[in-house]
Amino acid sequence: MHNAKIGVINVSDRAAAGIYEDLPGQAAVAVLREFLRTPFVPVYRVIADEQTEIEAAMVEMVDEEGCCLIVTTGGTGPAPRDVTPEATAAVCEKMLPGFGELMRATSLRYVPTAILSRQTAGIRGKCLIVNLPGRPKSIRECLEAVFPAIPYCIDLVGGPRLEADEETIRAFRPPGA
């Protein structure tokens, strides 16, 4: 069996310019390695806050690399350069707003500014794209909240079967799925 491919896109002008170390993207990979029993190969990019570049990376990861999941970090706030949700919506056939709703609700338990987040998720082909926040602590909190739905979502769109590490986190699948 081939390893699944999971795209990770850290959207950050400063990380792309080498001013900041790419901690958010690394944090996302670490949490996914902890949560997934299924081996996977990360397809990794650090991209400036440019909608066309973010879209191009997502399209390449799905259409050429065959990723079944892409997580983005950063670019989801209200600042003029924050365009990750727009890029996600532009490349997806279906949007899944429940992911953003749950992540905001989760983050609101920690910071009142979570209402400023515009995180979303959507489907392109056989791939789920999920926008995560840009801070490593928030990435873990949000992935813990939405991860239980991710493997079954990927099943439903025809992607590979991803198995959770049940010692760490439980994924939900209906009986018989």
Rank of each mutant, 00 (worst) to 15 (best):
S117H: 00
R104S: 01
G74N: 10
L143I: 09
V83F: 03
G75E: 04
A48Y: 00
A121T: 04
F40W: 12
C142S: 12
A57H: 08
E65K: 15
R161L: 12
E64F: 11
L102I: 15
G18Q: 08
E34D: 14
I115K: 08
R140I: 02
G176W: 05
D82S: 03
E21K: 13
G74A: 05
R124K: 15
G122N: 01
S12E: 04
G125T: 06
E101A: 01
I47T: 15
S138I: 11
C153E: 10
L156Q: 15
C92P: 04
L116P: 04
A149P: 08
T88E: 00
C67P: 02
E34Y: 00
L102H: 05
R140K: 14
F35T: 07
A87D: 09
A105F: 12
L162V: 07
V8H: 02
E86M: 05
Y110S: 07
E64G: 03
E166A: 13
E93M: 09
G100D: 00
T113M: 15
I154L: 07
G66W: 10
E163H: 13
P133L: 03
A121C: 07
A149F: 09
I6N: 02
P39Q: 01
P24W: 06
I169M: 07
A114R: 05
T73L: 10
T84G: 00
N131I: 11
V146Q: 06
P160Y: 07
T73A: 14
L116H: 01
A171H: 10
G18R: 05
Y44R: 09
A145L: 07
T113I: 01
G7M: 04
A105G: 09
T106W: 10
S117F: 01
I47M: 03
V157F: 02
L143C: 09
D49E: 12
E34T: 13
L132Q: 07
A17R: 11
